[in-house]
Design a protein around this nucleic acid. Structure first.
Lengths: 203, 203
DNA sequence: TCAGATCGGAGAGTGTGGCTATCCAACATT
DNA sequence: AATGTTGGATAGCCACACTCTCCGATCTGA
């Protein structure tokens, strides 16, 4: 299909697709002549992915580009996971305090979770703990433990579903999409659970 | 304290604080004369809240403003919850499909959750389900049920902690801050759980 | 065959968000 | 009275995410 048809199918404007091509968010079509390039389903899927990551996950185009490149270059599911995690973790501006890092490591140890020592999540989580502490709402270990305990079966189910994927590229994409796109599902459900949990005292 | 001291204590620049005052993110200080206004701890706390909501929760200043106003005007915890939820829910551009709304309602019914019929979360969740479906990663009821089941005890613990608050304003603030600021904690823990759950197959 | 439409590509322009810098009159300080 | 600082208003700036305009090459219909 030509660019115009890709635009019609994806719902993006002609100009926006050109912009995404320039920005490296979309791989070029197969040039058939100077004025003719063939785009296929992979381009449609990519555009859907970009839309999902920007609109649902609220990511910037630059972050989307890094995630997309990481997924593309990954030769294995493991590699995809590592690259995607690096790309997904927000830049933590403030260095986390040592005490928060210790708390994170303690949490991991209590639950027997094996996480890479230089995994970005350790620092991201520690920084998040610092922030809530500064606002006078310190997270108790009890709360963190309940989070960890609740998430373990969920994570196992999710990982097992990703592992079913046929192809490496599909698996990598599924991993990233699943991690990111289910986050709004999870947080919205949590807010609903709050509403439900406080319902008895409602008017 | 004067504006300059508030700037020094909060870490924001003089100019930025003036900008926040204009934007309605920060309530004015008590004017002592034409060139002298008294700021207090409430201003320091507010600035910390703004920083937390923008930097950690990634919210726009306009959204922060709405949340802050909602919390300020709330006369009761219940009111604060309603106002905050309205403000917190992202603008859902696409209308959710009817079938997703049915799935959401089914989920709520299965778990006995009471949620307001016009709660924004129903539509937000349904729209999120539509999105993952479009990307070929449909959420099974099994997955949604496991999310809901995992989150219930967590939400109950969180709600009980908020209920301990002394003052209505403090309770409202705590509610919003808790809901929003613990989201990164939760999502980061989920990503860690993924890493831990797939560790056995790591190199 | 050839005039006009369409294509892909590149650069400049646009609008919004989040600050930042400059100016100003009023006041406080020495 | 001279100087410096304050709060308030206006305008400017920069990054992001497009969007518009132009261009030469090529495809298409009569």
């Amino acid at each position: 299909m030509r660019l115009a048809e890709l635009a019609a199918r994806s719902g993006f404007s002609n100009a926006t697709i050109k912009y995404y091509l320039r920005a490296g968010l979309l791989h070029p079509g197969e040039a058939q002549s100077t004025t003719w390039a063939e785009y296929d389903d992979s381009h449609v899927r990519r555009l859907r992915l970009v839309r999902a990551l920007t609109e649902v996950a609220g990511m910037s185009l630059e972050t989307v580009r890094q995630v997309v490149l990481a997924v593309e270059e990954a030769g294995s599911e493991h590699e995809a996971r590592g690259a995607a995690q690096w790309a997904l973790s927000r830049e933590v501006t403030d260095e986390p305090t040592a005490s928060s890092l210790v708390r994170v490591d303690g949490l991991l140890a209590r639950h027997g979770w094996t996480v890479h020592a230089d995994s970005p999540h350790r620092r991201v989580l520690a920084a998040a703990l610092d922030t809530v502490e500064q606002l006078g709402l310190p997270a108790t270990d009890e709360l963190l433990d309940s989070y960890a305990q609740a998430l373990r079966p969920v994570a196992e189910l999710e990982v097992s579903r990703v592992a079913e994927a046929e192809d490496t590229t599909v698996a990598a994409e599924r991993l990233v999409v699943g991690t990111l796109l289910y986050e709004p599902v999870l947080t919205t459900l949590r807010r609903m659970a709050h509403e439900a949990a406080s319902a008895p005292v409602r008017e």
